[in-house]
Design a protein around this nucleic acid. Structure first.
Lengths: 191, 191
DNA sequence: CGCTTAATATGATAAGCATCATATAACGAT
DNA sequence: ATCGTTATATGATGCTTATCATATTAAGCG
């Protein structure tokens, strides 16, 4: 073993992180292997030492993106009660910041419409992420509302995604504010 | 004038209809000019007699897709009162049928995530369609709820889009049913 | 019935991209 | 310091696709 034990694993992680950003920014099909490698500070040829093909990278990148935002949510809601955590979650997710930065946001909002057309492996990585997020929300909800988790996630993602279509920033912000209010209502959180 | 007056216009419309379906089915970037022309019963070369380039076709196709579903909604809610129309709209939009057929459904649900990356001309055709749909919903709502129209459309689109990520048909249907119930609540429609 | 012209088809070109074969470089053990 | 090995780079290859140049076909007119 000539290179350090961890060297290859480290570059793999660099590639993966670059991919997680690039896939959200440009979409799985429009992003190129060479482009991702360049973002990781490498050239395209070495790619196949780390992943068998582009599809495997995309699937791994989607998982990584979900993990990233999952860790972020966990960190920012640590030690909170259910309602507090839900309220904080809404304030992180349904925002202009999220609307304006798909590349570091939730993969659902970044990839929703093109994912159904991806390969089975990619779709399945995506579905795992979606179900995880729904599960996270359900854990915060009181028992009698747990069943709403999926629909709440859908409302959050839909708000961000539609707000991206609206070029007027104030109209977009109004949409997001309305959505936040309605979400809190559905979650049983006092306004 | 050798061909009939209307001949060229008719083929243009055939190409446009094929494009409106294909763009929703495969996305603006993954669909090919040749593929669309083939669906219209033509070969790729003649394309440039009808549109200056692919971008113009995509923009026109998105407008056409919004028009198609707009006409459909108008037809199916004709003569209804506001609440009746809203209820019917929810029952048309937030359904398994819509989840399973993006190619003939709402362009928001089919294209939301990849549209922000398109050219200005395409985005603007899309935005017009989104705002039109929001306006249609607003017209049906009572005055005190009109401001919610955008957020309601976002919830509907989000529900369909997230339900497409869930492979279990029953879980997907549950999400849609929850969304329909909540939407009616927000619209002030008795369940 | 042939001729003209608009509409469509055929075929070429060039660019972009995933993948792979081969070359080079970095590293640590000796 | 040198060598062998592993990681990365360079440079094809083949395929797909938008676009365009040129050829062919269809339809109505004289």
């Amino acid at each position: 073993m000539r290179y350090s034990e961890t060297h290859k694993e480290e570059t793999r992680r660099k590639v993966l992180k670059a991919a997680a950003t690039a896939v959200r920014a440009k979409g799985p099909d429009s992003v190129g292997v060479a482009e991702i490698m360049a973002h990781a500070g490498l050239t395209h040829g070495g790619f196949y030492a780390h992943f068998p093909n582009k599809e495997a990278l995309v699937a791994a990148a989607i998982t990584e993106a979900f993990d990233q935002s999952g860790r972020r949510f966990a960190r920012l809601t640590e030690g909170m009660s259910g309602p507090e955590a839900l309220s904080a979650f809404v304030d992180i997710y349904v925002t202009r910041e999220h609307r304006d930065h798909p590349e570091r946001g939730c993969p659902i909002a970044a990839l929703s419409s093109e994912l159904p057309r991806q390969s089975a492996a990619v779709r399945s990585a995506y579905e795992r992420g979606v179900l995880n997020l729904i599960g996270r929300v359900a854990r915060w909800l009181p028992d009698e509302r747990k069943a709403d988790a999926a629909s709440l996630v859908a409302e959050m993602a839909g708000s961000v995604v539609v707000s991206r279509a609206i070029s007027d920033p104030e109209a977009a912000e109004r949409l997001l504010a309305d959505a936040r209010r309605n979400l809190r209502l559905r979650m049983g959180i006092p306004q």
